[in-house]
Amino acid sequence: MRDYEEILAEIYQGLQDSGQDRASLTEDTELVGDLGLDSVQVMEMLLEVEDRFNISIPVNILADVVTVRDLARQIQRLTGD
C-alpha cells in the first residue's frame, strides 16, 4: 500500500496542473463544491495519478468522493490490492 502523503502530493499536483491554485487546496477541499469540477474533469486529472501508481481508478468510486481526502483514501485502498 502506498504512502498516504505521497498520494496526496500527486493529487495536489494533478489539480495544480489542471489550473487550480495550490495555495487554496487542502484535504478538506471539495472537488465539486469548492472547485466546481465535474466527474469528467476529475477523471482527466487522475490519468497521471493512475500512471504514476500503475492502477486504474474506477469511475464508480467518485460517487463516494467529496473531498480531496476522500479521493486520496480511495486511491490508497486501490494501491493496496
Binding site: 477523471m43 490519468l47 486504474s56 481508478i57 474506477p58 469511475v59
Partner: peptide, 16 residues
C-alpha cells in the same frame, strides 16, 4: 455509454 455503464453497476474504467 457512460449512463449505461452507470445503470449496470459494473466497475467502469476509462482509458485514454
Amino acid at each position: 455509454i457512460y449512463d449505461g455503464a452507470r445503470l449496470s453497476g459494473a466497475e467502469m474504467i476509462r482509458f485514454r
